[in-house]
Computed example of a mutant assay.
Amino acid sequence: MKRLKITNDHGWTPRTLRKQERKIKDASLRVRVTAVRLVMEGHLGKDVAKMVNLCRQSVALYVARFNEGGLDHLLDRRLPPGRVPFLTEEQQQEIRQLVLTTTPVDAGWGIASSWNTRILQSYIQHTYGVSMSREGIRKLLHRLRLS
């Protein structure tokens, strides 16, 4: 197996990388920097993988990313954009205001004194033409910091 090498240190030394590790709060990103630092110190890729509890391919990938673009490229996380929300940001804020300032009786939605997912489900369907599950509405309320 070929030994991993840091071909371009981008001005980083093991000492400066260790200081950077201490500043990083995200554990998975800190492990990346640790892996690169250990390779820079001369450890074998498979040994580094055991030390930081990764597979050796991940260590090789992190070293390659560091060699390519330095620490910024190593710490860059490209997450998928995720699903498009059922309701726009404006509609979500309207729901938030509705729940905070009115009751279902005030809005003409039954005789209940407080909003629940069942009532909100029918309100959202009628007002916005969007069909959401009650669990989806519960999660929406949670994201809006409502209980």
Rank of each mutant, 00 (worst) to 15 (best):
K2A: 07
K2F: 01
R3Y: 15
R3A: 05
L4V: 14
L4F: 05
K5F: 15
T7M: 08
T7Y: 03
N8C: 08
N8R: 13
D9P: 10
D9K: 14
G11S: 11
W12D: 07
T13G: 01
T13P: 03
T13A: 04
Q20F: 13
K23W: 12
K23V: 02
K23E: 15
I24H: 00
I24K: 05
I24T: 12
D26R: 15
D26S: 14
R32Q: 03
V33A: 00
T34F: 10
V36R: 05
V36N: 03
V36D: 02
R37S: 10
R37Y: 03
R37V: 03
L38E: 09
M40A: 05
E41M: 09
L44G: 12
G45V: 02
D47K: 12
V48E: 00
A49N: 05
M51W: 04
M51Y: 00
V52E: 04
V52Q: 04
N53Q: 15
C55L: 08
C55H: 15
R56E: 15
R56K: 09
R56F: 02
Q57P: 03
S58I: 08
V59S: 01
V59G: 00
V59H: 06
A60C: 02
L61K: 12
V63T: 02
V63R: 00
R65E: 09
H73V: 14
L75W: 04
D76R: 15
R77K: 12
P81A: 13
P81H: 13
G82H: 00
V84A: 09
F86Q: 10
L87V: 00
T88L: 05
E90Q: 11
Q92K: 08
Q92F: 04
Q93K: 12
Q93R: 11
I95R: 06
Q97D: 14
L100M: 07
T101V: 04
T102I: 00
T103I: 09
P104Y: 07
D106L: 03
D106E: 05
W109Y: 15
S113W: 08
N116M: 06
N116S: 13
T117L: 09
R118G: 10
R118H: 07
L120Y: 05
S122G: 04
I124N: 03
I124L: 07
Q125E: 09
Q125V: 08
H126G: 06
T127M: 01
T127Y: 01
T127N: 01
T127C: 04
M132G: 11
S133L: 11
R134A: 14
E135D: 15
G136N: 10
G136R: 00
L141I: 12
R143D: 13
S147L: 10
